[in-house]
Structures are given as C-alpha cells and as structure tokens.
C-alpha cells in the first residue's frame, strides 16, 4: 500500500479535466444527434411504405446487435475514405456515436409513441387535425413524459459507452487516465480514480432518475 503515490492525481489534474470535458462533449453530441436521428428512424419505422420501414428496422437491428467497438473501427476507417482525406479521430468518433445511439433512441421514441392511447390520435384526427399536427400537439407531448426516465437512463449508458473511445486513442477521461497511468507508471492510482469518478457520477444520475420516476407516479 505504501508503494502508491496518490499525488499523481493532483499533478495531472488539468489533463484529466480536459479528458472529462471531451467525455461530456461526446455524451452531449451523441444524445442530441442520436435523438434527432432516432426520432427520424422511429417515424420511418411507422411509415406506410414497407421499404422505408424495412430499411429503418434493418438499421436499428444492425446497430443494436453489433459491438460499439466495431462500430468505432468502422467509422474510423470509413469516414476518411468517404471524405477523401484524413479526418481526426474526434470527428469519426462523434459520427460513430451519433449513428450508433440513434438506434437506441429510436426504440425509446417508438415505445413512447406507442404508450399514448390510440383513442387520443382518433379524437384528434376527428377534429380535423392532420397527422403531423396530431404528432406535434397530442402524441409527442404525452410520449415525452413517458419517455423521460428511459431517456435519462440511456444518457447514463452513453456516458459509460464513451469510455470505449480508448480503442481509437481519443483522449476522453478514461484514455487520459490511462495515458498518465502508463507514462508515470501509476495504474492503480489512476484506474481507481477513474472507477470512483464514474461510480459517483453514474450512481448520482441513477438516483435522480429514480426520484423522477417516483415523482411521475404520484
């Protein structure tokens, strides 16, 4: 135990903070972009045209069955190829995350829409509202309420998922800690810190979700 040098944490503080900032950026972009695309995918899955619905379903199935690491490798390789010139790992990772999480947010949005009673849609249509208006004023507001706990849970999962950018050497919180660990030869201190920080953040967030869930049920 006396072999450990915990001051390494203090010394690399700003470096680690930069890593955490990148993790936060990844979560924010993955969630925002993922929600937008996920909503689009959900609408596609509900489309009258079988081809559109099938395409969306295939996309969601693939993204949910394949490991995130493989998806990260895919886009790390594919994005520069498509654009025609080298692209930083951040851009590839952001694209990969948005497209990956979109599949999960799609399922969340779908279950939210399905949770609204069909009678609500019928009643709204009966007053002459168009389907898009019904979605905007009646279904989504109610669906959003149902969706919030699932949404918050998914954000916690996304936050954990961002640690995987380690495999493309992108410097998020986890990767910066591992850099310090190998550079200064202090794996125990650094990885313990990483574990404690993730535990604290994810645990608090899950408690918030729990409390929100209880509040809704009153």
């Amino acid at each position: 135990m006396s072999d450990f040098d915990w001051s390494v944490i203090a010394r690399s503080w700003s470096f680690l903070a930069e890593g955490m900032a990148l993790s936060a950026l990844l979560v924010a972009v993955a969630t925002a972009g993922g929600l937008v695309f996920g909503f689009g995918l959900a609408l596609m899955r509900r489309s009258r045209y079988a081809v559109i619905a099938a395409l969306a379903t295939a996309y969601v199935t693939v993204m949910r069955t394949v490991p995130l690491i493989l998806v990260l490798f895919w886009f790390y390789f594919l994005v520069p190829l498509v654009i025609g010139r080298p692209v930083g790992s951040l851009a590839s990772a952001l694209i990969a995350f948005v497209l990956f999480e979109a599949a999960f947010y799609c399922e969340i949005v779908r279950s939210a829409i399905a949770s609204v009673r069909p009678g609500q849609t019928e009643a709204a249509l009966a007053t002459g509202l168009r389907p898009s208006q019904v979605m905007r004023h009646i279904v989504m507001p109610q669906g959003l309420r149902a969706m919030t706990p699932l949404l918050l849970n998914q954000i916690i999962i996304v936050f954990q998922d961002t640690s995987l950018v380690y495999v493309v050497a992108l410097r998020d919180f986890m990767t910066t800690a591992s850099v310090v660990a190998s550079r200064d030869g202090r794996p125990t201190e650094m990885y313990t810190l990483v574990a404690v920080v993730y535990l604290a953040i994810c645990f608090s967030l899950s408690k918030v979700v729990e409390r929100y869930g209880k509040g809704q049920r009153q």
Partner: peptide
C-alpha cells in the same frame, strides 16, 4: 380527409380529452 372531418364532429366512449 382532415378538411372533411371539420364538418363532422365525433364524441368518443372514453372521452379522449387531451390530458396535458
């Protein structure tokens, strides 16, 4: 159809008022 539906009103068994 939406335009036509403005000419007929409908009342449902389960009321279906918008809860929000």
């Amino acid at each position: 159809l939406p335009k036509l539906r403005t000419r007929i009103g409908m009342v449902f068994q389960n009321f279906e008022l918008y809860p929000h």
